[in-house]
Design a protein around this nucleic acid. Sequence first.
RNA 1: GGCCCCGUAGCUCAGUGGAUAGAGCAACAGCCUUCUAAGCUGUGGGUCGAGCGUUCGAAUCGCUCCGGGGUCACCA
Length: 595
Amino acid sequence: MSLASFIQSATLESLEKLYGVRFTEKDFQVSMTKPEFKGDYSIVFFPLLKALHKKPEDLGNELGQKILELNPGTFFSFNVIKGFLNLEFSDGILNEFLHTKYNNRQYGFSDPKGETVMIEYSSPNTNKPLHLGHLRNIFIGWSMSKILKANGYDIVKTCIVNDRGIHICKSMIAWKLYAEGATPDSTGTKGDHFVGDYYVKFNEVYQQQMQELMAGGMDKKTAEREAPVMKEAQDLLLKWESGDKEVRALWAEMNGWVYKGFDTTYNRIGVGFDKVYYESNTYLLGKKYVQQGLDNGVLFKKEDGSVWIDLTNEQLDEKLLLRSDGTSVYMTQDIGLAAEKFQEYPLKKSIYVIGDEQIYHMKVLKAICRRMNFPFADEIYHLSYGMVELTTGKMKSREGTVVDADDLIDDMIKTSAEQTAALGKVEGSTDEELSKLYEILGLGATKFYLLRVDPKRKMVFDPKDSIDFHGFTGPFVQYTYARIKSILRKANVSVEEFNYDISSETLLPLEKQLILQLETFESAVSESGSEMNPSIIANFVYGTAKQFNSFYTEHSVIQAENQAKKNLRLALSIMTANTLCSGLKLLGIQVPERM
RNA sequence: GGCCCCGUAGCUCAGUGGAUAGAGCAACAGCCUUCUAAGCUGUGGGUCGAGCGUUCGAAUCGCUCCGGGGUCACCA
């Protein structure tokens, strides 16, 4: 139990003993005491005054005395200011916390609950490489999978690959027309970029043809439809759907190139999936549910044969589920896949990491599932994240302002190499060690930068900011870890073998603050899980690193005043290192032993 | 137009019912014969978009307005 919740229940118990009234945790708040006041945690008891007809000083003092009396040895003192009861923990209880947790690598993590959660993230189209926006999606998804695992859930990481449709047909036709048989291998190009280049080529040709048609007097709408290259792409799509062997072969080959490219990127950034769904396998799954919905009257057919659901009475609109020609739309597929997931796995919850532009879509999906009486309807959770914008505005593929994922990672690794070299602290390392280090730092910086903001909010990507390794950044936290490891090496202490005998040393303020900070890891883990928000962990590890650095500057570990102090500080250092490592791991970030 | 999200220091973000609103970056001033200065300490910087309301107490809750964004396809 965390210190905060310990105080919660101690307060409830004391109030009941004192006044015979049962309150709930919502009737008062427990928070960390502001630095300008004496104390560690504060009980805000304003709300209780009215119910108990007490003056603040009286209630505060009575409550404080009762809490101390019922929990001997736990608290050192208390004081009352207005409606705040400030409690100070005894050094003994904090020391005991340190003693039991300092070398527990599982600290902060829950035992398995035996419940499974699926989390879908990334879900790219196969016609172009991954970009900065995908990276935010991917890092949030990966991090949440780790955080939920730390909260005791079994995780199925998944991805729906949008491998069919007009977008890939556009790349295909451009390749057929202009590639002259070129392949990623023959040109030495990464597969996803290779296919993406033909998508760009398609759009160039398409634009040009439209201009020509419009110059000939055609209106824009018709020109969009009539441009030869677009008609050829449409033709490929029809052929694909009818199972044309040649088209299917080319489609499979080009997608294969893309997958190889994606895998390279996924491997490099250290993410993966347990189950990959392909749209080409799942896009027909929804149709049977549409028939079911028609049969039981949830859906209705219009005169032209199209199928709809009416959601106007829940502040949504009418939504099309089947075109008049009987083909399915996006939503139809999503219904099918949603059901498929729950059939394939015993899911407690099904999470979708998708941009906030699809909030409406996901709301409609849930509403439809509810109408169709799917038992899982309420277990669908849309973890929506805000778009990543540039300092110059939005990323627009048409204007060529999209930040490519591979390029970005290359830049970040290069930057970390330059910065490391400039500091000259890792001389004597092998080339292999160095390139590993640069990767850890470059990826750490990128991941931290994208995860430190609440997912729900849109964010600005400032290249200048993102390569700053000072302050609220991944490398800052990694640096703190590396320094601790350096201390431990110098002290000749092995983390596994160090044995901390609990001491009765008085804790100095900076030692105490660090313990109190470390103690909040557990609640950071559970909060980031229930809020679906990795930035809580990012803030925690940053705060912890900062707290350690303050301590480190002021007090020497190796040159401590006496052996007991030294042992205490070694234990504190080990626990900080472990906790930073655990926390960063939840963000998908590795730690370097030196930097 | 309907629905939804956002507006906090020059910039990027925390804080979502409690004490004098916090960090990082940028600016300025200090600290390396002492465990890694990718660090630490300090200074300046705010009508929390505006107004009204609820409350003992509002950046936080409600209403109105202003500004920015998303979405509402027989597109994917």
